[in-house]
Design a protein around this nucleic acid. Structure first.
Lengths: 159, 159
DNA sequence: CACGATTATATCGTGCACGATACAAATATA
DNA sequence: TATATTTGTATCGTGCACGATATAATCGTG
């Protein structure tokens, strides 16, 4: 392909990823509005529903987000009574995040969301097998790209 | 899959899309910093390099962005002498966007960026054929998801 | 034990995204 | 031709993202 040809929007791989990411967030919105959550807050809850009592850093390493994003976000969630923040006794620098009853209870209400989204995304054109393949490529890219940016690597997930 | 199982971060398709989108934007940053552009500004230029003298709306329909995002963004680009804004004579409501010489000239400097990114994203694990397949799925999703949200549809691209 | 380096979190500034809303120009229709 | 509706753009408020920077706690090493 000629150099200038690669600048055509149509030939970009990055643009569809960017667009789909935004469109998916928008597709989540009606479901998350009912729970009073934003998309990023929902991601934090996904992490905490799997494992409670995590540090801000740990949540960030799982979501590939830094503390300059997470700190205010988690504070907003604390304000909304979804979780509590408390300094660790072992290490005064560490802030441990714990779900409240309200935060824990949202898990049930959220449990139908993934299937609803999946139903939206699978139709005659896109089958589940496509999505599995897609996820494989994306996961490889996360590895490649998060290795390049030294901050918040994806490999720090071993306890 | 059990309902609660679908809430596992690992089983989400939305999360890797969201992460890769952010990581790709970050991967662009060193290249775009040299040109004094943000990622979204680069997208606007991609559109204008293909076709100049477009309205704000038209740019938005190509990028799936609304005017509440584009208006201030385009004004910042005008401030940076990348483009000009002028009301259409035919329709006083319409703002026509035109590249300046500086904006036009950036095309040459940007022409190597797509290949650089592609080199980052293809390796032993991810081949070009994977990316072509990926793009097909994503394009289907853009159609599905932008049809659902009535604002700025993707089908309005016919002149 | 001292002290420089590292680590965990937080703050600040900037630029998106986007829902809600405003407003003027253009269009449709009674 | 009035006026109701639609259309194109802009503004406002909120919540991310993220680079740069600050600060306090902890660790490493002499």
């Amino acid at each position: 392909m000629e150099k200038q040809e690669q600048l055509r929007l149509e030939n970009q791989i990055c643009f569809p990823i960017y667009s789909v990411s935004r469109l998916i967030t928008k597709a989540y919105k009606p479901y998350l509005d009912k729970l009073g959550l934003t998309y990023t807050q929902y991601l934090v809850l996904l992490v905490l529903w799997e494992e409670n009592n995590l540090s801000v850093n740990k949540i960030g390493s799982k979501l590939l987000l830094n503390t300059n994003t997470l700190s205010p976000l988690i504070k907003r969630m604390e304000k909304n009574d979804l979780l509590t923040r408390s300094r660790s006794i072992d290490d005064e620098r560490t802030v441990l995040v714990n779900l409240t009853e309200k935060g824990e209870a949202l898990k049930d209400q959220a449990s139908s969301i993934p299937q609803n989204l999946l139903n939206t995304l699978t139709n005659d054109e896109v089958e589940l097998s496509d999505i599995i393949l897609l996820k494989k490529t994306l996961d490889s890219w996360i590895n490649i790209l998060s290795r390049n940016s030294e901050t918040s690597s994806v490999d720090e997930n071993n306890e």
